[in-house]
Computed example of a mutant assay.
Amino acid sequence: MTKRNKIIYWIATIWLALGMVVTGMGQIVKMKQGAGGEEYIRHLGYPIYLMTILGVWKILGVVAVLVPKYPLIKEWAYAGFFFLMSGAIISHLIVGDLKEIFGSALLLILTLLSWYYRPADRKINLGVQ
């Protein structure tokens, strides 16, 4: 892995982790406003209890991505982040909140960058040469 790729990986991964932790904690404590807050969830038509589920999974996903080893769990975490953020973008588009997709789109891009540039020891080794 080149130094450039390692820098891209860690910058994307740290920003992804920060974004997921901040929004996840906000959802766990049921913030009224802000990204992923109760107002957003209600406006999008989702039940409030979903906030706790999403918040917990975001925190667990961050742990999975940051902890060394366990590449299969990392793949699941990245997939979860991808589906979560793409779902958020689609949800905002459906209700007409075009200006509200920026945060979700940024986290989606960071997810893709972190996944693409992850080091070999954080990838699943399928034995393919």
Rank of each mutant, 00 (worst) to 15 (best):
K3N: 12
R4A: 15
N5T: 10
N5E: 09
N5C: 03
K6V: 01
K6N: 15
K6F: 06
I7S: 08
W10P: 01
W10I: 06
I11L: 15
A12K: 07
A12T: 06
I14S: 04
I14M: 08
I14H: 04
W15K: 07
W15A: 11
L16Q: 10
L16V: 02
A17C: 09
A17I: 05
L18T: 10
L18P: 08
M20R: 05
M20P: 01
M20G: 02
V21F: 09
V21E: 02
V21T: 12
G24D: 07
M25C: 11
M25H: 15
Q27C: 01
Q27L: 04
Q27S: 09
Q27G: 03
Q27E: 15
I28E: 04
I28Q: 05
V29Q: 14
V29L: 14
K30L: 12
K30A: 08
K30T: 11
M31Q: 14
K32L: 09
Q33E: 15
G36I: 04
G36H: 06
G37C: 07
G37R: 07
G37S: 07
E38K: 12
E38G: 00
E38W: 08
E39S: 13
E39A: 12
E39W: 08
I41V: 13
I41N: 03
R42Y: 06
H43M: 01
H43D: 03
H43V: 03
L44G: 02
G45P: 03
Y46L: 02
Y46H: 12
P47R: 13
I48P: 08
I48K: 14
I48A: 11
I48N: 11
Y49L: 09
L50E: 03
M51V: 05
T52V: 10
T52P: 10
T52W: 10
T52Y: 15
I53C: 08
L54N: 13
L54D: 00
L54E: 01
L54W: 12
G55C: 07
G55L: 04
V56H: 06
W57S: 12
W57K: 09
W57R: 12
K58Y: 05
K58V: 07
I59Y: 02
L60E: 02
G61W: 06
G61E: 06
V62H: 11
V62K: 05
V63P: 03
V63E: 02
A64R: 08
V65Q: 04
V65L: 13
L66R: 13
V67Q: 09
K69L: 08
Y70S: 04
Y70N: 13
Y70F: 15
Y70T: 11
K74N: 00
K74C: 04
E75M: 06
E75C: 09
W76I: 15
W76Q: 13
W76R: 12
W76H: 10
A77W: 04
A79Y: 08
A79S: 12
F81E: 00
F82G: 05
F82D: 01
F82N: 09
F83V: 09
M85H: 14
M85V: 01
G87A: 06
G87F: 06
A88Y: 03
I89E: 04
I89T: 12
I90E: 10
S91R: 02
S91T: 01
H92W: 00
H92K: 09
H92T: 02
L93G: 03
L93Q: 08
L93M: 05
I94P: 00
D97C: 03
D97K: 14
K99L: 05
K99R: 13
E100K: 01
E100I: 01
E100Y: 09
I101K: 02
F102Y: 14
F102H: 07
S104I: 01
L107D: 05
L107N: 13
